[in-house]
Design a protein around this nucleic acid. Structure first.
Lengths: 230, 230
DNA sequence: TCAAAAGTGTTGTATGTACACCCATGG
DNA sequence: CCATGGGTGTACATACAACACTTTTGA
């Protein structure tokens, strides 16, 4: 069955490393865990898993994300492939990195104990194993570029969110303060948000109106050659 | 030596697929070849090769690019990983795609016969095997985005080039005509080109001055927070 | 009543875009 | 001497950046 030419080739372990990102308290957090096996057992690590024969790469990512968060159908994108010979000090492993953006309210806190995991502020992540810090840096760069031209951010927020929340999310992504009036003007002009009638009173006495992202409107605008930009 | 946990995992064939791009006659060309082995022997395909145990991924790419072009030290970047289960109809192969930008004057034409390869206009590439058309589309999108913010284009030109040449290159990348005066103003304002004293008279009687890209100047400007944009 | 966060417009500046003519030269 | 591609500047429109006060309401 397998053509001869293939049989002469080497085979490799293939894994995925997942950068699971969440947003709370106006800050971005990365889920990291203590590695469960040798080498470097007990060190901080991204969430990972080996690809199985019956899985596509994205299925592996979905499995890993579900295993560590309890959430399914999350937004994810590929960061890249990492294949230096000595990157994994155990064996040669080619790793495909993906980031996943989750709505942290659905995160199953129990799993932190199960996996010895924790949420770490994105800009305070310390040393990770192997090339995971490199992967993280690459991810942050990609995330910043993508967030400016694609409406990724909404994946990190609940279905209903306020404009101050949305603004602080983008401030966290870009690590820079944004002007409130300019931000609101720009996002509202895009006409992809729907104002709700109720308010979030959890962070002020006056309360801030909830909004919803309208994906249908956004997709329609896309077809008309419209480009998101924040 | 190999930790136990690894041994329980599956291994996979890992290959690289290279999108080798060149620029001539004011057009972008992709190098494609007839596949040399089954399945789909004889069909149009990207340049590819299996990763070897003693090679990093980028070493594999360098080897493949050299094998098919005779050129070393080319500019290359990763496009992504392609790992659907049935993407390669022979066996399961996880493929890492890279694009390489070459100065086509150094291309070894002999190799076309050796590998049954040819240069195909980028916007006239027909059906390729497996998911190679998908990979090509992804590459074009990445290339367009990168070319707008990084000085990639110079990798496709000789060391000395003219502004009309450079403009037609960017027109080929973006598939849109650019205004001559605006283009020249913008690129010259950046102060990363060095005007030479001699002219290229091959395409006009008057002749167009040669310019060189000054990488040192560019790197210096980068440190000062400068951003390339075309 | 007051502290704390939500909400609201205008103006100047910079950047991008559109546009037409003269120049140099080889044949 | 003329056809061909190379080279040049300005005016207008649009997008971006800076900036301060009023509103609401629970404690």
């Amino acid at each position: 069955m397998t053509p001869l030419f293939y049989k002469e080739q080497e085979k490799f372990y293939v894994s995925v490393d997942c950068l699971i990102l969440g947003f709370k308290n106006d800050k971005l957090y990365l889920l990291i865990s203590k590695r469960k096996f040798e080498p470097l057992k007990g060190q901080d690590s991204l969430m990972g898993g080996f690809v199985r024969a019956e899985e596509s790469l994205s299925e592996t990512v979905s499995r890993v994300v579900f295993e560590y968060t309890g959430i399914q159908d999350v937004f994810m994108e590929q960061v890249g492939a990492y294949g230096e010979i000595g990157r994994d000090t155990g064996e040669r492993v080619v790793s495909l990195a993906y980031y996943a953006l989750i709505d942290i309210q659905y995160f199953d806190e129990q799993l932190c104990k199960v996996h010895d995991a924790r949420w770490q502020e994105l800009d305070k992540v310390g040393d990770l194993i192997f090339d995971h810090n490199q992967i993280l840096n690459d991810t942050i760069e990609i995330l910043r570029n993508k967030a400016a031209t694609k409406p990724l951010g909404f994946n990190l927020l609940p279905e209903k969110f306020t404009l101050p929340q949305l603004q602080s999310l983008y401030e966290a992504i870009y690590q820079t303060p944004l002007d409130k009036r300019n931000f609101r003007k720009k996002i509202l002009e895009m006409d992809i948000l729907e104002k709700q009638e109720d308010k979030d009173k959890s962070s002020s006495k006056r309360g801030a109106f909830y909004y919803k992202f309208n994906k249908e409107k956004y997709d329609l605008l896309l077809q008309k050659g419209y480009f998101f930009s924040l």
